[in-house]
């Protein structure tokens, strides 16, 4: 009789504690998904028309490899001047007559790219500006263990400098080599489409200084804008399409040798 009562008390105790524990665990599991549900609700609430979706077009047929974009970017964004840290850079491809492809980017192209193969050996040659592709399905955002890098609601992949722990996983995950570890701030760093400029109606610094309009920045949702016109007028490609990153930097004139 007494044991029955004790057994009942024990049972009640177990039931309550199981409920408590179960509840806490379920709550802590649901919380992260809450954020995702919230985002979807926010997205549909705001409506696609309100926020821009930023992208960039690169016209390889216009790029002259002067390197001013890379230089301006470093100045505008306080990137260390040493040749190991680039938010954007320009590559020179020289396809030789024997089929060998030579790729160069000394100091990221700053100071102008110089020809290094004699004319008679060249089959074709061109310049390719590179930068963060602000992928809609960014592998770097997927990889960040703490949520320090993210895609803003207007489509720019940004880094939270106060939150990044400096593990470099995002740098490993980026297929385009667009990220680097900033030696001063010790956090992951990369092109931000000059977020501080575009949110004030200015163009990114690299677009501002390009003498041949090889970089076209704009809103993919603006049907009358320059970028959409560029995409409609030219056959454009993205880098490494087989990786399905949904990159929002579109190249016109991308030759198959480009890595």
């Amino acid at each position: 009789m007494g044991t029955e009562r004790i057994a009942k008390n024990r049972r009640k105790f177990f039931q309550t504690s199981a409920a408590l524990i179960g509840g806490t665990i379920i709550y802590s599991l649901i919380k992260p998904f809450e954020a995702i549900a919230q985002t979807e609700a926010e997205n549909s609430k705001e409506g696609k028309g309100n926020l821009p979706l930023w992208g960039m077009g690169v016209d390889i047929e216009s790029c002259i490899g002067c390197g001013k974009c890379a230089e301006a970017c470093k100045m505008e964004n306080n990137v260390p001047k040493e040749p190991f840290y680039f938010r954007t850079w320009v590559e020179q491809y020289t396809v030789k007559n024997d089929g060998e492809v030579k790729i160069e980017s000394p100091n990221g192209g700053i100071g102008g790219l110089k020809q290094s193969v004699p004319d008679e050996d060249i089959f074709k040659s061109f310049m390719v500006p590179k930068l963060c592709n602000h992928c809609t399905k960014a592998p770097c955002v997927q990889a960040c263990p703490v949520g320090a890098t993210f895609i803003s609601p207007d489509g720019v992949v940004l880094v939270d400098e106060t939150y990044c722990i400096g593990c470099s996983y995002c740098i490993q995950a980026c297929p385009y080599g667009a990220r680097f570890m900033n030696p001063i701030t010790k956090v992951a760093d990369k092109c931000t489409f000059c977020y501080h400029r575009i949110t004030k109606g200015l163009q990114p610094a690299c677009v501002e200084v390009c003498p041949t309009d090889a970089r076209i920045f704009g809103d993919l949702r603006d049907k009358k804008g320059d970028l959409v016109k560029f995409l409609q007028d030219n056959p454009t490609q993205v880098l490494k399409p087989h990786l399905n990153t949904h990159s929002r930097v579109f190249y016109n004139g991308l030759s198959s040798e480009v890595k």
Binding site: A143, P145, V146, C164, I165, G166, C167, K186, V187
Partner: peptide, 19 residues
Amino acid sequence: QHPLRSYEIFMTPNPTSAM
């Protein structure tokens, strides 16, 4: 690079990150 922030992995682990 920021070891003092390492607690963030416990506080806000990104559900899509293997790490």
